[in-house]
Nucleic acid binder design. Structure first.
Lengths: 195, 195
DNA sequence: TATTGTACCTAACAAACGTTAGGTTTGCAT
DNA sequence: ATGCAAACCTAACGTTTGTTAGGTACAATA
């Protein structure tokens, strides 16, 4: 069971970490190569340009997110159950791969126009999945919301933000954080009468 | 009533815009100078380095945020009223000065250690104000929350995120967005029985 | 053994960068 | 008019950057 991770994937992984650390323009390819265990010029055997590394990283991450969220929602019967799974997934995915998700969330401005459009299209597909849950919740369960898009954005930002401060083994588990955020989004802060 | 804005402030303003557009490492001083209406080298008459521009921008913004939030809370009687004003302020401030707030939220990693500590200290002061409101709400009004810090972070990320998509004259006013978010955080999505 | 393609190295390129030194202009106080 | 400091310009510096060309090591194939 040796290390079957290809050099290409090592580069992508290290690139995510380095881009997060310094930002895409602040990261340089010699440092990236060093971390990947090769010389500067050798990166071009695997990628055509620095830009392509960024694009592959973001495009791959967005595809993975869409696929996995879709999987998670299979078998969920009610909008409420779908919402719970979405919140849990979105937090866990961001905490598990904080480098990839951070890049994907924050480096859109550094994509060349063509790549930008592709990644934004996938991001919109992801958002639409959640928007649909919000709309269903309103239609079928009387959720209190006007603009599904507005609440979707709130959910996404709030859950993605966890990865900016979360440290493994630091008091709360991901499951606990997810439960707290599910409670907040479903019931709010103010006390409820018992039903 | 001529243009009394000093060149120094013009540079800071344009820097905020440019840094947001390209990221701190991706922005170059010749371009910044051009936008400020001077030559590249002349920036150094006003600032000692590129780093100092970033620091002044962030430090100034954090001080302003603390001061204004504190003002907004004067006269608020209950935790609920304080929460409402905080949400409204945080959204409005981010939407009004999206360049400055974006830099302050996202460019911490590019501050040199000494500057980093100063800005983080002010950011923590700002967060503590909101945390205190959460704690008070729990103690005095029975709000449903365990970790005030957790909910503070959720609030901050969620409200700050508005500035990433908000466009003036695009359907909703800031006040409407604020009301929606206040409702979400206070009552949640699920329907409530009438009290 | 000869061939071939993949993976990598070395060294260099042109461009862009933050920064600096030294000179010029401008407006104001004396 | 003179002195002077603030505000700005010009031109250059050393370094770093993304990228490329040409070569080497090596395993698989024939």
């Amino acid at each position: 069971m040796a290390d079957t991770v290809s050099r290409r994937e090592i580069i992508l992984q290290q690139a995510a970490h380095l881009f997060r650390e310094k930002g895409y323009p602040g990261a340089n390819l010699r440092e990236l190569a060093r971390r990947a265990g090769i010389q500067g010029g050798s990166i071009y055997h695997h990628f055509a340009s620095k830009q392509e590394i960024l694009f592959q990283l973001m495009d791959q991450t967005m595809s993975d997110m869409i696929e996995r969220l879709t999987q998670q929602l299979v078998g969920a019967q009610t909008p409420l159950e779908k919402l719970r799974r979405t919140i849990h997934f979105h937090i866990e995915y961001h905490v598990t791969g904080p480098d990839q998700t951070y890049i994907t969330d924050e480096e859109l401005r550094n994509l060349e126009p063509e790549n930008y459009l592709k990644v934004v299209a996938k991001r919109d597909r992801y958002q639409k999945i959640i928007e649909q849950i919000m709309s269903d919740g309103k239609a079928k369960e009387g959720w209190q919301l006007d603009e599904p898009k507005l609440y979707t954005r709130a959910l996404i930002k709030m859950c993605a933000g966890v990865s900016t401060w979360y440290k493994p083994g630091g008091g709360m588990t991901v499951a606990q954080i997810a439960e707290a955020y599910i409670g907040l989004l479903c019931n709010g802060l103010l006390p409820r009468e018992e039903l």
